[in-house]
C-alpha cells in the first residue's frame, strides 16, 4: 500500500516533518482510515528513497502524539483517536503558516490593516479562480517559511 508522498529534501522543511505532516493530512482528510496499517519504515524509506532514520523519526513523533500506534506483531497502524487530533494538528500547521506570512508582512513594514486587506483580496481572488488551477505562485512564496525563532 503505497503512500504517494511528495518529498522535497531541500525546501527548508525537515524531511521527517514533511513525512509526518503528510501522514497527518492523509488521516485528517480520510485518505488513511483509522485502524489502517501503514507501511513499515523500511518500505516507506525505500519507496521514497529517503533515509530510513528520517522515516523512523517521523513515525516516532507521530507515535508520541498518539496518531500512530504499534500493533503487536503486525506493525504500525493509525490510532483510534487519530482523526480528530490530525484535524487539530492540520489546523495548527496552517495557523503556523499564516503566522509566518504575517510576520513576513510586518517585517516588510505593512500595517495590520493592509495585511488584512491583502488577505481578503487574495481569498476572493482564489475563490474566483478555484475552478481553474490553483494559483501556483501563491503556494510557493519566494521566501521560504521562517523558522519560528521569535
Amino acid at each position: 500500500m503505497p503512500l504517494f508522498f511528495d518529498i522535497n529534501a531541500s525546501n527548508g522543511v525537515p524531511v521527517y516533518e514533511q513525512v509526518a505532516r503528510q501522514i497527518v493530512n492523509a488521516v485528517a482528510s480520510g485518505g488513511l482510515a483509522v485502524g489502517q496499517m501503514i507501511p513499515s519504515v523500511r518500505e516507506t524509506a525505500k519507496e521514497l528513497a529517503i533515509n530510513p532514520n528520517t522515516v523512523a523519526r517521523a513515525y516516532r513523533s507521530l507515535q508520541d502524539e498518539e496518531i500512530l500506534e504499534t500493533v503487536r506483531g503486525s506493525g504500525i497502524a493509525v490510532a483510534v483517536a487519530a482523526k480528530a487530533k490530525c484535524k487539530t494538528l492540520r489546523g495548527s500547521v496552517i495557523r503556523g503558516r499564516i503566522a509566518d506570512v504575517i510576520q513576513d508582512a510586518r517585517q516588510s513594514q505593512l500595517s495590520d490593516d493592509e495585511i488584512m486587506k491583502m488577505l481578503q483580496a487574495e481569498m476572493k481572488r482564489t475563490n474566483r479562480s478555484s475552478n481553474r488551477s490553483s494559483n501556483r505562485s501563491s503556494n510557493r512564496p519566494t521566501n521560504r517559511p521562517t523558522k519560528g525563532k521569535q
Binding site: I7, V15, A45, K46, A49, N51, P52
Partner: peptide, 27 residues
C-alpha cells in the same frame, strides 16, 4: 538510492562519496 536506503534500513552502514547534493540530502 533505493538499494542504499534498503541496506541502511536493514541496519547496515553505507559510506558514499558524491557530488550529487540533492541525492545526498535525501539519503
Amino acid at each position: 538510492l533505493e538499494s542504499m536506503v534498503d541496506v541502511s534500513a536493514s541496519g547496515r552502514t553505507v559510506l558514499l562519496s558524491s557530488h550529487q547534493i540533492p541525492e545526498v540530502e535525501r539519503v
